[in-house]
Nucleic acid binder design. Sequence first.
DNA 1: GCGTTTGTTCAAACTTTTTTGAACAAACGA
DNA 2: TCGTTTGTTCAAAAAAGTTTGAACAAACGC
Lengths: 174, 174
Amino acid sequence: MGCGMATPPEQENESTSALEGLERQIVDLFVDGVRVLGLPRSIGEIYGVLFISPTPLALDDLVEKLDISKGSASQGLRALKGLGAVREVEGNGERRTYFEPAVDLKRLVGGFIREQVRPHIESGKKKISKLAEAAREEPDPERRAFFQERVARIDNWTRRGGQVLPLLQRILGE
Amino acid sequence: MGCGMATPPEQENESTSALEGLERQIVDLFVDGVRVLGLPRSIGEIYGVLFISPTPLALDDLVEKLDISKGSASQGLRALKGLGAVREVEGNGERRTYFEPAVDLKRLVGGFIREQVRPHIESGKKKISKLAEAAREEPDPERRAFFQERVARIDNWTRRGGQVLPLLQRILGE
DNA sequence: GCGTTTGTTCAAACTTTTTTGAACAAACGA
DNA sequence: TCGTTTGTTCAAAAAAGTTTGAACAAACGC
């Protein structure tokens, strides 16, 4: 390390600049959270910063606070918008667009289900009907019966899954 | 292993050997399924093969059918046992251990929640109480109020999450 | 028009996770 | 005891997923 009085450079005095205490903890918590959901780290970071910010933030604020690239910030915001977890703030005379987090669980869960869960259930349904067909074609009667039982079971799972989701949303929606 | 009677190797005429039609489709379906849950591909493959097999299978059967390494099969089976998604079949006079899948949704969902979800909720709780502390220490009253509101909100989320899980299990449990 | 600011895109670099395979251990029969 | 079968471990290789950054586009004021 250099000589006396090392450069104190950094230090944006704005609400911008690096993360401090509470912010860091919140961001870490959300990083963990989205990881469980199978979403990338940067998504958690961005949502976390927005969540604990008293005011809306713009893309560049995120880049600076989190020390991530513009590319990451842009993609992360897009994903969060898609999930309905972040919205653009309207009607400030500014040129930049500012973002704020959606903070009610109903909306968050709903977005996740819509974007990440439903599509798989949908594509799964198609595969299952193909499966049923394949099972019907098994020549050996004993094996056929077994296969059909298993396929029926999967079908039942997805059916129940499909029923649970709206229920879930209702419960969490309060 | 010596002389005459040339090894007639390849071509297991058994239920073993490579995947065929229906099996392939089932395996693909489960690969997709576990991917949504954030579990590795081989887990889905292994569970899929067991799920559609009329008889229990041993580790070597999986290695052969799926063309994966013994290491993968061993680790995958361990994970599946941990999730309660697979069990060892008892009391066949054999030396090898055979496996069969758990096929009721309640058990499967329960295992997943226990292994993959609860631990995160637990560790989250600790972080949240640290968070509440940090929020209390914010000097500026306005910011403090805001931070406390946000922390309370997260706390509420986890509380509700914790309530939903047993409910979920009950509903799916039939 | 021109220069600036703001934001997007996407191939390549990087990181993380998963799989492999060779070495090892345990259990068994001969 | 020894050789064989069965299964586990873990460092290294491969695959998958994420982030970066430079090039590009759009919107704006002058």
